[in-house]
Simulated assay, not measured.
Amino acid sequence: MVCVGKLFNNNSKVPSDENSNEVAIEDSDNDLLGNEGEEDEKDIDCVNDDQDMIENVDPNEQMCEELENDFMKSSSVSLIRCAAHTLNLAVSDFLKDIKDVRSKAKVVVKKLRTPTLLNLLRTKKLRKPMLECVTRWGSTYNMLKSLLEVKDFCCESSKDIKELYMTDDDWQQIESACDILFPAYNISLKLQNKQLELGDMFFAWYSCKLKVEQKTGWMSKNFAAALKKRGELLLNNSCVLAAVYLDPRYQLLLGDSEKELAKIFI
């Protein structure tokens, strides 16, 4: 969905028809990331596969580019991408790199959710692992996180139940993936806030990227690269830079070249 609104004049309560700046803000439904801040114990049964997720993302990205090209033809209109959707695209890029371990984890979770093993989990006072819905990356994070909570149970039971077996490297990858995705998971609700200011959005993205870059390993490098690639389309925007430049809390985050672009836009 695209919303176009006129900025108000300083001396008037109604929008000006002449010499008014218009800002088009690209928005998306909150369902892109799902219910990121809560751990729901309800069953999540989804028949989609990884290819469905890729096919769902690409048309949206193509539509965004087409809309951006259309609006750029008008000098009085600036396009701002949806931060929540951009984060979703960055995480989707990263999840492709851990496709194999995700598939293994999903097999184990499905086996753990069978009636017999669920009864065993209850006797040990362990929670039922969550099953991912691939169109909502937050459910993937919750699935991997919930699987780690029953790691000891899986290791003990894998001697008799082959479907629960995972190598030490698999478990290490799951732990690393959860650790790396946590910063993005943590800011996902903030980026969906209807009253989110551009300066707060810029800082949330900047802090998430910084936390990921501080981690070590190939996963952190790949995710940091995805955040950088997608973030350039979101943050290298004259309107966003101008808003950050005018916000005394975050102005120091801008470089000299970014400040100059902000001044020109203002």
Score class of each variant (00 low, 15 high):
M1N: 13
M1G: 12
V2G: 06
V2H: 07
N19Y: 03
N19W: 07
S20V: 10
E22D: 13
E26V: 14
N30H: 13
L33G: 02
G37W: 08
E38C: 05
E38K: 13
E38M: 05
E41R: 05
D43L: 08
I44Y: 09
D45L: 14
C46V: 00
C46A: 10
N56E: 05
V57Y: 06
V57D: 06
E61S: 10
Q62F: 15
Q62Y: 10
M63L: 15
E65D: 15
E66W: 09
L67T: 06
E68W: 12
N69Y: 12
D70M: 09
M72Q: 14
S74F: 15
S74T: 11
S75I: 15
S76D: 15
L79D: 03
C82W: 05
A83G: 11
L87F: 08
L89V: 12
L89E: 04
S92H: 10
S92D: 07
D93Y: 06
D97L: 09
R102K: 13
R102T: 11
K104P: 02
V108H: 00
R113E: 03
T114W: 04
L118V: 08
L120A: 11
L120E: 09
R122A: 10
R122Q: 12
P129N: 03
T135D: 10
R136H: 01
R136G: 00
N142P: 01
V150E: 03
C155D: 09
K159T: 10
K162S: 05
E163R: 03
L164I: 00
Y165A: 01
W171M: 03
W171G: 02
I174W: 02
P183N: 01
N186R: 14
K190Y: 04
Q195S: 11
Q195Y: 08
L198C: 06
W205K: 03
K211C: 09
K215N: 05
S220T: 02
S220G: 00
N222W: 04
F223E: 01
A225I: 02
A226M: 07
A226P: 02
K228S: 10
R230W: 09
E232I: 02
N236S: 11
N236W: 13
N237R: 04
S238N: 14
V240P: 01
L241I: 00
A242S: 11
V244G: 01
R249M: 06
L252P: 00
L253T: 01
G255H: 12
D256V: 09
E258G: 01
I264K: 15
